[in-house]
Write a protein that binds this DNA or RNA. Structure first.
Lengths: 164, 164
DNA sequence: CAATTTGTTCAATCATTTTTGAACAAATTG
DNA sequence: CAATTTGTTCAAAAATGATTGAACAAATTG
């Protein structure tokens, strides 16, 4: 009813397939589930927004996976909902601007860990027993770690600058 | 025979324990197995080089895990072997210079994926069917992806510069 | 060179994470 | 408002990835 050629709604072209695999592998690198990479890859390689149902059919994954994966991608600002007039279903499209994508990723997946790490460093400091013969060594290397955190924080704006 | 206090060979101090956990979590972020983070954390928090056997005893992990984890860390240049005179066993010590660590990580875990990704992009280009109505869209976005790769390559030297 | 120590390998096991799918709730339609 | 469509949730199943430990090889010792 909606597609132009017979099965443009149910099958990927070879190039789309390659894109799906590219993003699956890339996502896997970053510790994301395969389904998330696949969904993003498909949307990236498709001009028109796709419904959840189309994604399920084309990628042959379960509705549950698709639903969770899409939510995840929306939280990252990697996918947007497009409301098509007269269409009941939500449709989804990939955010293709690297700046937006990287920002989402840094905000959701990198910064929280940096925060958390800084807290942990404080906890280590508190846990050093002054009587421990190792105390001097521990203090010195804790300082060194704080330095690492300082540097990783410096890198963030730099990255934003290059990709902006 | 070698330790000074009763069980300095078999137990961690509270601070050491916190360090182990810090690196376990951090490593997990980067997609490394827990055991790898734990080993590095222990070595980081310990002034003297430790033998494989000491690591097994203190962390309570299997010899196999320790052996594999140490090899992995050596490949990353995150751990070095120290040959102690008169000691038969290998002893291991943590590389604590961020520059060396980050270089190892970039070289072993980041750059190969970038290479591989570039190859994939070429494959996608080859897979685009000129008759596909989507071809224009695919070509445009493939170009965009090449741009991403270009930018991520720019980031590497920048990172090296900040941490150097 | 036999006995012992040390470290590696890898198949089997265990733990964690992801995916599935059926039950459900919410929204929409006629 | 009953029927249908759409999307979410979550317990169970499947898949993936890490760890174990026993068998092995290499090196060292007396």
């Amino acid at each position: 009813m909606s597609g132009s050629s017979a099965d443009s709604d149910t099958r990927m072209s070879a190039a789309q397939h390659e894109m799906v695999e590219l993003f699956m592998h890339f996502g896997h690198n970053l510790g994301l589930p395969k389904s998330v990479g696949a969904i993003y890859g498909l949307l990236y390689a498709t001009a028109e927004p796709l419904s959840l149902d189309a994604i399920v059919t084309i990628l042959q994954i379960s509705k549950g996976s698709a639903s969770q994966g899409l939510r995840f991608l929306q939280n990252l600002n990697a996918v947007q909902v497009v409301y098509l007039p007269g269409q009941r279903r939500d449709h989804f499209t990939a955010e293709r601007r690297l700046r937006k994508l990287a920002n989402g990723f840094l905000r959701e997946r990198v910064e929280p860990h940096l925060e958390h790490g800084a807290d942990r460093l404080d906890r280590i400091g508190d846990a050093i027993d002054p009587d421990d013969p190792n105390a001097v060594h521990l203090k010195k290397n804790l300082e060194r770690l704080r330095n690492w955190y300082r540097k990783s924080r410096q890198i963030l704006p730099l990255v934003r600058n290059v990709i902006g």
